[in-house]
């Protein structure tokens, strides 16, 4: 049995993890240690980012290898059960019931994550404060913008005060303003927690993450600091190619790591 201490960050160890779906290899022998703080997983579509996140979230089990969260071995039922106390996941795609109140949505999310009934209202209020929606609790979800709905999803994942937060493409589909505000919130909530962000947006990774892993075709092609990643990308940026700086850096990086 693993005991979790509130406010104490926990890391993740990924040890030789492989995963196959319908006989197709999605992840291949991934070994990586993720420290507290914000870590990014970068990679093109289909690289296995979401799969790796779902394995960390105990949604699926690796075909080979294991993931250890703190002391909890996620390959064992008791380890998964224990880890779920401290895990929060915002999936890439999720839906909200538009007719529900924002507060009720988050309070119910808190309840399904194990928060006691009497504490759910308080937990929802705290989580909504954390994502900057403290004053929107009584509103219906339908009254919120896309960015605010994304923050409701984040609040739902935070409601049980998890120590590890997994975010799958958190800024996908948001306009630049909302993306900026969401990044600020993520930076804020990362204090004292382990946050793992899967994204194919170079700018998200560069702005948010202290550490980065790059997945290419299911293999971990790079691990290191954001600055190292930037330097690696900068070497290959073609000044005359179209697109933003981030797009060109991403393209150069992927090319260097063999994604194309």
């Amino acid at each position: 049995m693993t005991y979790w201490v509130r406010g104490v960050s926990v890391g993740l160890r990924i040890e030789g993890v492989s995963y196959a779906y319908r006989r197709k290899s999605v992840l291949s022998d991934v070994t990586w240690t993720i420290q507290p703080g914000v870590t990014g997983i970068l990679g093109p579509n289909g690289a296995g980012k979401s799969t790796l996140l779902s394995l960390m979230a105990t949604l699926q089990k690796p075909s080979r290898g294991r993931i250890v969260l703190g002391d909890a071995d996620l390959s064992t039922p008791s380890g998964r059960q224990s880890a779920r106390r401290v895990l929060g996941l915002v999936p890439q795609r999720f839906t909200l019931a538009p007719e529900m109140r924002v507060h009720d949505t988050v309070a119910y999310a808190a309840w399904i994550h194990g928060v006691a009934d009497r504490e759910c209202d308080e937990a929802a209020a705290r989580a909504l404060d954390e994502v900057g929606l403290g004053d929107r609790g009584r509103d219906r979800v339908r009254a919120l913008s896309g960015g605010q709905r994304q923050r409701v999803g984040l609040a739902a994942a935070l409601a049980h005060d998890p120590q590890v937060i997994l975010l799958d493409e958190p800024t996908a589909g948001l306009d630049p303003g909302h993306r900026l505000r969401l990044r600020e919130r993520i930076t804020h909530l990362a204090e004292g927690r382990t946050v793992v962000i899967a994204s194919h947006l170079m700018e998200d990774i560069e702005h948010l993450c202290g550490h980065v892993g790059v997945l290419v075709e299911g293999r971990l092609a790079f691990t290191g600091g954001a600055a190292e990643l930037h330097a690696l990308a900068a070497e290959g940026i073609g000044a005359d190619s179209p697109g933003s700086t981030f797009e060109r850096a991403y393209d150069a990086l992927m090319a260097r790591l063999g994604a194309y």
């Binding site: 105990t58 779920r84 999720f94 019931a97 399904i112």
Partner: peptide, 9 residues
């Protein structure tokens, strides 16, 4: 639904 997560306790 965000209120129905298979990994939730």
């Amino acid at each position: 639904r965000i209120t129905s997560q298979p990994y939730a306790r």
